[in-house]
Simulated scan of single mutants.
Amino acid sequence: MEWDKLNEYMQIAIDKAIFYLPRIIAAGVILWIGFKIAKKIVQVVNAALKRTGFSETLRPFLSSTVGILLKGAVLFVIASVLGADLTGLVAILAAAGFAVGMALQGSLGNFASGILILTLKPYKVGDWIQVEEKFGSVEQIGIFSTDVLTPGNKILIIPNSKITDSVVTNYSEKGMIRLELEVTMPYSESFPRVNKIIAESLQGVPKILKEPLPEIGIHNFDSHNVQLIVRPYVLPDDYWEVTFAANRAIKKAFSENDIKVAYSEGIEIGQIGE
Rank of each mutant, 00 (worst) to 15 (best):
D147A: 05
F98S: 11
E56P: 01
D165C: 05
E8H: 10
S55I: 01
S172W: 06
I267P: 00
E180L: 13
V44Q: 08
P236L: 07
A13P: 02
N170V: 02
H224K: 07
E139W: 09
E200F: 10
Q11M: 09
S264N: 04
L116M: 10
V77R: 15
A47P: 00
V234F: 06
L31S: 14
T146P: 02
Q43V: 13
E268R: 03
A73I: 12
A38D: 02
T57S: 01
F98W: 15
P22L: 11
I92N: 04
P22F: 14
I68Y: 09
K5M: 14
D238F: 01
A84S: 10
V125R: 03
N153T: 03
K154R: 06
K50E: 12
R178E: 15
F135K: 04
L70Q: 11
I163M: 13
E182D: 12
V44W: 13
K124T: 08
E56M: 05
E189Y: 05
L89M: 11
F254W: 02
I216L: 12
F191G: 01
L86Y: 02
V226R: 15
R23F: 13
E173P: 01
I37E: 10
K71H: 03
A245L: 10
Q140T: 14
V205Q: 11
L213I: 10
A112D: 09
I177T: 05
A95R: 12
S188T: 08
P206V: 06
A94E: 09
G28R: 12
N220W: 13
T243S: 14
I163T: 08
T243P: 03
L202I: 02
V168D: 03
Q105N: 07
I129G: 01
V148A: 07
F54E: 00
K174R: 10
S161P: 04
N247K: 13
Q43P: 01
L6D: 15
A95L: 15
V100Q: 07
K252C: 02
I259D: 07
G175R: 09
V74C: 12
E8F: 06
M10T: 08
L181P: 12
I78K: 02
P232T: 11
Q43K: 11
P236Q: 13
V29L: 14
D222H: 13
S190T: 01
N153G: 01
R23D: 04
Y9A: 04
E182C: 14
G28N: 08
E200R: 09
T150N: 04
A73Q: 11
K121S: 03
